[in-house]
Amino acid sequence: MTEKVVAVGREISLAYEEIGDAGGEPLVLVAGLGQQLHSWPDEFCAQLAARGYRVVRFDNRDVGRSTHESFRPAKLVSMLVGRFPAGQYDLTDLADDTAGLLDAIGLASAHLVGVSMGGMIAQTVAARHPDRVRTLTSIMSTTGARRIGRPAMSTTRLMGAAPPKTRADAIDRAITMFRHIGSHGFPFDEEHVRERAGRGWDRDPSSAGTGRQLGAILKSGDRTPSLRSVTAPTLVIHGDRDRMVHPTGGAATVRAITGARLETITGMGHDLPKGAWPALLDLIDNHARATRSTDARDTTAS
């Protein structure tokens, strides 16, 4: 895995990595709110690659080693009443960044798999750029509809904590958060959370980008009308123990997208526990594989 940075248009550059055979079926993993490319675990990506995929994972705008905006994010209270600073982007901009990444690395289309905010981005790519999405897999995500997929009150309180000031604080904060929102039906892997949080701090210790990404979600509002135009075969995966995005978010996504189907993983919360990997890998692979024999689109852009 060699990290690279490419321009994707509109003065935005994204850091990305590719895992697997360059001739494999292209599958792009889209990370969640404030999460960097390595939030998709190395071994998880390697197992997808072993199934014949050219796996691409990347830092969204405002995190990791991708372009960071310079404006100060709005306070949450301001966002909730629709007041955003000049320059605040929305999910359509993040979706266009993703489409620009496909252009930059020579992919005419790909299977898109997004988690949480990444699911929202992948949904939006499928709505705005239907010819770029072979299949859509939306994991632990939602539609932006009011009172749907809302975090638990206890989760909201944790999210309101002051940003970490040191690497050790960032690690402790991540452990506290993922003990809360993680998959209570599977063993908690504190060492993995610790390693991921430390790696994230080393790549990008800033925190303002997460606030700007949250602004993108809230500025986008209810995306249900646009999701009705999605034509890509769509799989929605949600855990029944999710405290960050209530399972009603997954159900709403299925209702919004014609032909979408829902798979619920018992015991899964708002993370990717290793114990759930066999189910997740099979679901993602089988969904993509169902279209591969009939998908005649070129792997690379002409």
Rank of each mutant, 00 (worst) to 15 (best):
G239T: 04
A161S: 12
L48N: 07
I175H: 11
I265D: 07
D242N: 02
Q36F: 06
V125S: 06
T234F: 10
E11F: 14
G64P: 06
S206W: 10
G24M: 02
I139S: 08
T92Y: 00
A74R: 07
A276C: 12
V113W: 14
H238G: 10
I12V: 09
M117W: 10
V236G: 12
E25W: 11
D62C: 01
I139L: 13
A15V: 01
V8F: 11
P26N: 07
G259Y: 15
T231W: 12
G100H: 01
G144W: 04
S229R: 15
V55Q: 10
L14F: 06
S206M: 04
R51H: 14
M153K: 15
P26L: 04
R194I: 01
V63R: 09
P41K: 11
S13Y: 02
G239N: 08
L14I: 03
A252Q: 04
A162S: 13
A290T: 12
P273G: 08
G23R: 05
P247Y: 06
A279R: 15
I181M: 02
E69V: 00
I265E: 13
R128D: 10
Q47L: 12
I181E: 03
P163Y: 07
T210Q: 12
R72E: 14
R51Y: 15
A86Q: 14
R241F: 13
T92M: 09
F186D: 07
M79P: 03
G9R: 10
R10K: 13
D172G: 14
P187M: 03
I171R: 09
L91A: 03
E17M: 05
R57A: 03
R146K: 15
A301I: 12
H287L: 04
G144N: 08
V245G: 09
H238M: 01
V236S: 10
F178V: 01
E43T: 13
D204P: 06
A290F: 15
R212Q: 08
Q88E: 07
N60M: 00
G118R: 06
G250E: 11
R61Q: 06
Y53T: 01
P247T: 06
A74C: 02
D285Y: 13
G100V: 03
S78I: 00
D59S: 01
A288I: 11
L218P: 05
R289P: 14
D21N: 15
R132Y: 11
T299L: 15
D131S: 14
A174Q: 11
A99R: 14
A232Y: 09
P187A: 01
F84N: 04
V5N: 13
P163T: 05
G52E: 04
A152N: 01
L158T: 02
G114P: 11
W40I: 01
G221I: 01
P233K: 13
T224N: 05
P187W: 00
H111K: 04
P205R: 06
A208S: 05
P278H: 03
G64S: 05
I217R: 04
L281D: 10
T124K: 12
A50T: 08
